[in-house]
Write a protein that binds this DNA or RNA. Sequence first.
DNA 1: GCCCGGATAGCCT
DNA 2: GGCTATCCGGGCA
Length: 222
Amino acid sequence: MIAAPDRTPLPRRFFDRPVLEVAPDLLGRILVRHTHTPDGPIELRLTEVEAYAGPADPGSHAYRGRTERNAVMFGPPGHAYVYFTYGMWHCMNLVCGPAGSASGVLLRAGEILSGHERAHKHRPTARNDRELAKGPARLATALGIDRHLNGVDVCAGPRSPMEILTGAPAPADQVLSGPRTGVGGEGATHPWRFWIDGDPTVSPYRAHTPRRRSSDAPSDGT
DNA sequence: GCCCGGATAGCCT
DNA sequence: GGCTATCCGGGCA
């Protein structure tokens, strides 16, 4: 018999710790997307995350310091840093550590627990429930997360658009780690991606693929 | 199942 | 102007 997940909100102090402690501890927690409509929220159990360790981390958006785009990462913990990437997609991070440390955890994948119908409406190409949030941009899309939610406090209670509940943290022996996805150079060396062993919603690993420059393409010969 | 390339726009140098 | 913390569809096995 499985105990029901704990629906107590995670307190801000949960996030005010070193990012490499917080990241694996987020697995099994519940992200609630409150839409404040009669349908109720969309809920997701986190199964895969990645740590980004502040201005010293070459893989981080905080590398080379604070800009308008990454300002939320430099703020207090327990807030959502949502950014737009590849001209099409949104991804969501949770800011960790004391204000100014500019570290965060990218939410890479999860299992939709409720609100499946609306999640499929947001992600019509998903062929089954497992694919709804298998990948960071898919996760954001399925939950209706975009730049409007950048800076949202996830420790501010159920009237906020997003909240994190205690859930059922994954036991340490079920947590695996490996290199981060899509991060090249020195940033690729650390095993700062964490996932729940064997979970079908974990996104497939993809090594960093450098883009071929358009000048390398065949030309008219001029 | 896999490998590959195109899409698309904001951000930063 | 080059790059990006990505996804999707098509081709092939």
